[in-house]
Amino acid sequence: MQALHNIELDVQEGEFITVIGPSGCGKSTLLRIVAGLDLEFQGSVTLDGRPIGGPGIDKGFIFQEPRLFPWLTVEKNIAADLSLRSSEVRRKVDELIELVRLTGFEKAYPKELSGGMAQRVSIARALLRNPRVLLLDEPFGALDAFTRAHMQEVLLDIWQRNGTTMIFVTHDIDEAVFLGNRIVILKSRPGEIRAKMNVDLPHPRKKVNSSFQTFRYQVLSEFEKVDELNWGESGAGI
């Protein structure tokens, strides 16, 4: 089965790419290919000109679901293969737990966490590794509006401080405009890029600003064009 078709995307170092598209259009598949988790595809994916042969510590990945190790506590899940006895790791883990607002749950097991809390643990786990490229698959989908806004700020802060290249999948247009310096709009069946838009809004962005709203409408109308095209194509086919 072909999930994606004709995807061409050139990401510069330090970019913040947001990817939006309807459910099932192949967003997760695209991220998995970039991560090196799926190797059965046609075409080429390169990092610094070298083809990606598999997952690596330089490419962080936050899955759509938390995927925590159920036998490890929150802090051990974040540390995973790194030892908490190292004072460096200990300090960073404590910092991250505070950053994702899970203080007090260090010793809790995943079964004692809500979906959103578990997802924040998996975000902390990826951030601890300080990867060059961070691939995020709808990471804030399970969060309430306030926690979500906080996590968006956290992510932007890390991006600005560390220059991490971000590829961020979402189905929330506001989120895509708020975070990205480039938005990639996908359409489904087959999953293709419909549009790439540069977001030329300066940080810090305010969702209530008129420039933000204007841009949001532009993206929205691009989306509607996608719908029209889908209609048109199927209409022509019949």
Partner: peptide, 26 residues
């Protein structure tokens, strides 16, 4: 799904056994 996590976190074979296979088969 957890095996994929272990790949993303770059566990080596020894770590995969110790931190993934043994606990989940306990």
């Amino acid at each position: 799904k957890l095996y994929e996590v272990s790949r993303v976190l770059s566990f080596n074979s020894f770590q995969q056994v110790r931190r993934l296979v043994l606990p989940s088969s306990l």
